[in-house]
Every structure is written in C-alpha cells, then in structure tokens.
Measured scan of single mutants.
Amino acid sequence: TFELKGKVGKVVKIAEDHYLVEVEGDKWIAYSDEKLSLGDRVMVVDVDGLKLKVKRIP
C-alpha cells in the first residue's frame, strides 16, 4: 500500500464520511481535508492502513 503514495486516481463515490477512489484499477476508501466531487482527479498523499489520504489535483 505504501507504493500508492504519489499515485493519481479519481473519486468514484461520495459517502457520508469518506470517499471511494479508484487508483490503478482498484477502489480504496479515502479521506481528504478538502471537499471533493465525483470525477475529481486526486493524488494519494498518505496511506493509513487500508485508507488513503488524498488531495485534489488539477
């Protein structure tokens, strides 16, 4: 999972307290300090167990 840091993915689902992002064909639970929208491109900035911390990228 640490090899996911720096990888780019996209938001595929928005849940009440987390996001579902697809990175390299796999779906992961993710969270972010900013509000994300469906389809946003994101970069993995940290890995916390099986959850990814992501940030939006242009």
Rank of each mutant, 00 (worst) to 15 (best):
T1N: 15
T1R: 15
T1M: 15
T1S: 14
T1D: 14
T1C: 06
T1W: 14
T1A: 15
F2M: 12
F2E: 13
F2H: 14
E3I: 01
E3A: 01
E3F: 11
E3R: 01
L4N: 01
L4P: 14
L4V: 03
L4A: 02
L4H: 01
L4R: 00
K5S: 07
K5R: 03
K5Y: 15
K5T: 11
K5M: 15
K5H: 15
K5L: 10
K5I: 13
K5V: 11
K5N: 15
K5W: 09
G6K: 00
G6T: 01
G6A: 01
G6W: 02
G6E: 02
K7A: 02
V8T: 13
V8I: 11
V8K: 11
V8A: 05
V8F: 07
G9H: 00
G9Q: 00
G9P: 00
G9M: 02
K10A: 15
K10S: 12
K10W: 11
K10N: 15
K10T: 12
K10V: 09
V11C: 04
V11R: 00
V11A: 06
V11D: 00
V11P: 02
V11I: 09
V11Q: 00
V11G: 00
V11E: 00
V11K: 00
V12G: 12
V12M: 13
V12K: 07
V12R: 10
V12D: 09
K13D: 08
K13C: 04
K13E: 11
K13S: 10
I14D: 07
I14H: 13
I14Y: 09
I14R: 09
I14L: 09
I14C: 04
A15I: 09
A15F: 08
A15P: 12
A15G: 11
E16G: 12
E16M: 12
E16D: 04
E16T: 10
D17A: 03
D17Q: 14
D17W: 08
D17V: 13
H18F: 05
H18K: 09
H18W: 05
H18L: 12
Y19K: 05
Y19D: 05
Y19P: 04
Y19A: 09
Y19H: 10
Y19L: 10
Y19M: 14
L20D: 12
L20W: 04
L20Q: 09
L20R: 11
L20A: 10
L20G: 13
L20I: 08
L20C: 05
V21Y: 01
V21F: 07
V21C: 04
V21M: 08
V21G: 01
E22I: 03
E22W: 02
E22M: 02
V23I: 13
V23D: 01
V23N: 02
E24N: 05
E24R: 02
E24T: 10
E24V: 06
E24K: 09
G25D: 09
G25T: 13
G25M: 09
G25F: 11
D26L: 15
D26H: 14
D26I: 04
K27A: 04
K27Y: 06
K27P: 07
K27H: 06
K27V: 03
K27F: 10
K27S: 12
W28T: 02
W28M: 05
W28Y: 08
I29G: 08
I29W: 11
A30C: 04
A30F: 01
A30Q: 00
A30Y: 00
Y31K: 14
Y31P: 03
Y31G: 08
Y31A: 10
Y31I: 06
S32W: 08
S32T: 03
S32I: 14
S32G: 08
D33C: 05
D33R: 11
E34I: 07
E34D: 08
E34G: 04
E34M: 06
E34H: 06
E34A: 07
E34Y: 07
E34K: 05
E34S: 07
K35R: 10
K35F: 07
K35Q: 15
L36R: 01
L36K: 01
L36M: 15
L36P: 07
L36G: 01
S37E: 13
S37T: 10
L38T: 12
L38G: 07
L38F: 10
L38P: 15
G39N: 10
G39L: 08
G39Q: 09
G39Y: 08
G39A: 08
D40F: 13
D40H: 05
D40E: 11
D40I: 08
D40C: 03
D40P: 00
D40R: 04
D40A: 05
R41D: 14
R41C: 07
V42Y: 01
V42K: 00
V42I: 15
V42E: 00
M43R: 03
M43H: 05
M43L: 11
V44G: 01
V44Y: 02
V44R: 00
V45W: 13
V45A: 06
D46S: 05
D46T: 04
D46I: 05
D46E: 10
D46M: 05
D46H: 04
D46L: 03
V47R: 07
V47S: 03
V47H: 04
V47W: 03
V47E: 04
V47I: 07
V47N: 03
V47P: 04
D48S: 06
D48F: 04
D48K: 07
D48W: 06
D48P: 03
D48N: 14
G49F: 10
G49W: 08
G49S: 06
G49Q: 06
L50T: 10
L50G: 10
L50Q: 09
L50V: 09
L50I: 08
K51Y: 04
K51T: 08
K51Q: 08
K51R: 11
K51H: 06
K51N: 07
K51A: 05
K53T: 14
K53A: 12
K53L: 10
K53D: 14
K53S: 13
V54I: 14
V54R: 00
V54P: 00
V54W: 02
K55F: 08
K55A: 14
R56C: 05
R56W: 10
R56E: 11
R56F: 14
I57R: 06
I57Q: 07
I57Y: 10
I57T: 15
I57L: 13
I57P: 12
P58M: 10
P58D: 11
P58T: 12
P58E: 13
P58S: 06
P58I: 08
P58C: 04
